[in-house]
């Protein structure tokens, strides 16, 4: 992303932008209403064709992010993590390797 994420406006009308260098260290959002901001960030990310993985650890958030992105079942995700590559005697280190493993199977 070239310009960063638009977070909102301050009182004088200037924009608040989260830039990638800031995001590299991560951002914590505190408060239920922050989910709206995150939904917007996800929307901006999608427009930028960024890879996004939403990990929903809390049930009430599920409906808030329903249909924002394709859903992946828990067993699929979990199975992907520890699918053992018997031929190469290793676990896949990333998704590409996982796809290779799946394709080979």
């Amino acid at each position: 992303m070239r310009t960063g994420f638009f977070l909102g406006y301050v009182q004088n009308g200037s924009e608040v932008i989260l830039t990638p260098p800031e995001l590299l260290s991560g951002v914590i959002f505190n408060g239920v209403r922050c989910k709206r901001i995150i939904r917007n960030l996800v929307g901006q990310l999608r427009k930028s064709n960024e890879r996004i993985l939403i990990l929903c650890l809390y049930e009430p958030f599920a409906v808030d992010f329903d249909r924002r992105l394709p859903s992946i079942e828990t067993h699929e995700l979990a199975g992907a993590i520890f699918t053992y590559d018997l031929i190469n005697d290793r676990y896949p280190g990333n998704i590409s390797q996982l796809f290779e493993l799946r394709a080979g199977a």
Partner: peptide
């Protein structure tokens, strides 16, 4: 495994 997804953990 899609590029973008929501995982309901």
């Amino acid at each position: 495994f899609p590029e973008n997804c929501v995982a309901s953990l």
